[in-house]
Amino acid sequence: MKMKKKMIWIIGILLLTVTVAGCSSQSTQGSSQTDKQEAAYPTKQIELVVPAGPGGLTDLTARLVADFVSKKWKQPVLVINKPGAGNVTGLQYGLIQGRPDGYTVVADNIAASVLMAAGMKNPPIKLEDRIFVSKFVDNPMCFSVAADSPFKDMKELVEWIKQNPEKLTHTSLSTTSMNALTAAELCKAIGVDYKKTQPVLVQSGSAGITMIAGGHAVLGDQSVQETYPLAAGGKLRVLAVASKERSLLFPDVPTCQELGINIDVTWYGGISVPKGTPDYIVKKWDQAIAEIEKDPEFINKMKEMHGNASYLNTADYNNSIKEQVEQYTELFDSMGVRQ
């Protein structure tokens, strides 16, 4: 009996030593790999965090990127939706809790990065919390009115806004959203005080554009992707596109710049990784995005989702973000909405 107990103890200790040894040898192997720096990447599944619910443009285009990147690298790229708290939940999960080892990447966008930094004095997620890798999708903003609205073109609308700025109702996701930005840029360009206008806050792009189609607010300031379904169905009239170039979705609609209104507002999405992610991984992602952006199939799929494949490399992307943050911080300050 005693013998047996002793044997169990010995076997137990032996097993323990083997396990401990096994674990420690594994960990030394791991650290030697990081020492070598440019180890093989990726060797396992990558998580692509989408800070929005499934079904929207952020999600759809991220899934497309995941699909193409995983085919290229022959490793699964798993899209994880973390919606809530205006992008914060997802960014928190991906950038703050995510490990900077290249296996957690985030489908970032202008609202989550630039507008959060410009709109808040103390944003919960800061620009420095991530490395911006590259931009992959564009979605210009545009101006629309209900189909039965008296305004037939942008000129008539602008004249009316100049006369009645306090009667201008428009929808917006928050006081510092893409919608608010679009409307504010318009006001600035035509010399109207944005503070006099009346934003109606809504919870989703589709809720906002539906209110415009129903005539419950005057000016639609959504993206072309959000505007397209109701416009194609004849419920909305699109007056002008807010980007420099015309939209592929509305080839006949003039840009604001063509009409002498000097604005350029475009929603965009890109890849970000947690700060501290090694350089070679950032480069690898940037290269991969650059390559898939040239793939006609990718461009075509993007078009089908009403997005616009548009690439900026790491350096250009970072510069443009820096510029925009300065520009929009000033704008939000002048609008009195910076919190």
Binding site: G55, L60, T210, L230, A232, G233, M305
Partner: peptide, 26 residues
């Protein structure tokens, strides 16, 4: 109208978009 009334419909809308089908009267 292409308006998703609830979260599952929003995902379904995404499914339609993947195929390049634009919901709405068209």
């Amino acid at each position: 109208l292409g308006i998703p009334g609830s979260p599952p419909l929003a995902v379904l809308l995404g499914g339609l978009m993947i195929y390049g089908l634009t919901p709405g009267p068209m």
